[in-house]
Simulated assay, not measured.
Amino acid sequence: MQTTANTQTLDQFVAHVFAEEYKQAMMLCTTDVKFVVFRNQSDHQVPIYGAHIGQAAGTLFFKNLAQLFEFGTFEMDDSIENDHYIVRFGELAHTVKRTGDVFNSLWTMIVRFDEVGRICLYRMHEDTAALEAALHISR
């Protein structure tokens, strides 16, 4: 069943990212994978915002996350799955390295898989106001 395989792939992907094993994480993705945080447009104040397309851009994106945050909790509360998508919901608490403030947020992850079970879209939605407050950004 594709849904079970996709769940295993996503779990492996997340484990690789948190272990900073980016090459192994990207091997679970298509070459033109698209990582989107909050919106497609980039933002000079928050470098993780925007669309990051391709494995090299994905690797850079996750390296930037690791430079930005001291990862704390990242817990999944629930998920919805079918043969092509997994949508997960949860909570996180990460410390911003530069400010020392904790970024607390509910999150939603939307992941799409291609026909052979590789990740082709990884989209995160979090509380942007809480993130910008923890980064000490004012708009």
Rank of each mutant, 00 (worst) to 15 (best):
residue 1 M to T: 12
residue 2 Q to C: 08
residue 3 T to E: 06
residue 5 A to T: 03
residue 6 N to I: 00
residue 7 T to A: 08
residue 8 Q to N: 12
residue 11 D to Y: 07
residue 11 D to N: 14
residue 12 Q to E: 07
residue 12 Q to T: 14
residue 14 V to Y: 02
residue 15 A to I: 07
residue 17 V to N: 05
residue 17 V to H: 07
residue 17 V to Q: 04
residue 18 F to I: 08
residue 19 A to I: 04
residue 19 A to G: 05
residue 20 E to N: 14
residue 21 E to Y: 06
residue 21 E to D: 15
residue 21 E to I: 07
residue 22 Y to M: 07
residue 24 Q to M: 04
residue 24 Q to V: 01
residue 25 A to D: 00
residue 26 M to E: 02
residue 27 M to E: 15
residue 30 T to H: 03
residue 31 T to Q: 13
residue 31 T to W: 06
residue 32 D to F: 01
residue 33 V to L: 04
residue 33 V to K: 02
residue 36 V to Q: 14
residue 36 V to N: 12
residue 37 V to R: 12
residue 39 R to E: 15
residue 43 D to Q: 10
residue 43 D to A: 09
residue 44 H to G: 10
residue 45 Q to P: 05
residue 46 V to W: 08
residue 46 V to A: 14
residue 47 P to D: 09
residue 47 P to I: 05
residue 50 G to E: 04
residue 51 A to K: 07
residue 51 A to M: 10
residue 51 A to G: 09
residue 53 I to F: 01
residue 54 G to H: 08
residue 54 G to E: 12
residue 54 G to W: 08
residue 54 G to Y: 05
residue 55 Q to C: 15
residue 55 Q to E: 14
residue 56 A to R: 10
residue 56 A to Q: 15
residue 58 G to C: 09
residue 59 T to L: 11
residue 60 L to M: 06
residue 62 F to I: 07
residue 62 F to S: 03
residue 62 F to M: 14
residue 62 F to V: 07
residue 63 K to L: 02
residue 63 K to T: 02
residue 64 N to Y: 02
residue 64 N to S: 11
residue 64 N to M: 13
residue 65 L to Q: 10
residue 66 A to N: 06
residue 68 L to G: 10
residue 69 F to I: 02
residue 69 F to G: 02
residue 70 E to R: 00
residue 71 F to A: 06
residue 72 G to E: 13
residue 72 G to P: 10
residue 73 T to C: 11
residue 74 F to H: 12
residue 74 F to R: 04
residue 78 D to W: 06
residue 80 I to G: 01
residue 80 I to L: 12
residue 80 I to W: 01
residue 80 I to Q: 04
residue 81 E to V: 08
residue 81 E to R: 03
residue 85 Y to A: 01
residue 85 Y to S: 03
residue 86 I to R: 00
residue 90 G to V: 11
residue 91 E to M: 14
residue 93 A to L: 13
residue 95 T to I: 08
residue 95 T to C: 12
residue 96 V to D: 10
residue 96 V to P: 14
residue 97 K to H: 01
residue 98 R to Q: 15
residue 99 T to N: 12
residue 99 T to Y: 10
residue 100 G to C: 06
residue 100 G to Q: 04
residue 101 D to S: 13
residue 101 D to T: 12
residue 102 V to M: 05
residue 102 V to S: 09
residue 103 F to D: 11
residue 103 F to N: 10
residue 106 L to K: 15
residue 106 L to E: 14
residue 107 W to L: 13
residue 108 T to W: 01
residue 109 M to V: 13
residue 109 M to A: 13
residue 110 I to H: 00
residue 111 V to M: 01
residue 112 R to L: 00
residue 112 R to N: 00
residue 113 F to E: 00
residue 114 D to Y: 00
residue 115 E to T: 03
residue 115 E to L: 03
residue 115 E to F: 00
residue 115 E to M: 03
residue 117 G to E: 00
residue 117 G to M: 03
residue 119 I to Y: 00
residue 119 I to M: 00
residue 120 C to A: 01
residue 120 C to H: 03
residue 121 L to Q: 06
residue 121 L to V: 02
residue 122 Y to M: 05
residue 123 R to Q: 14
residue 124 M to E: 15
residue 125 H to R: 13
residue 126 E to C: 07
residue 126 E to G: 10
residue 126 E to M: 12
residue 128 T to H: 08
residue 129 A to K: 12
residue 129 A to Y: 09
residue 132 E to C: 11
residue 132 E to V: 06
residue 132 E to T: 13
residue 133 A to G: 04
residue 134 A to R: 10
residue 134 A to S: 15
residue 137 I to F: 08
residue 137 I to H: 11
residue 137 I to G: 12
residue 138 S to M: 09
residue 139 R to S: 09
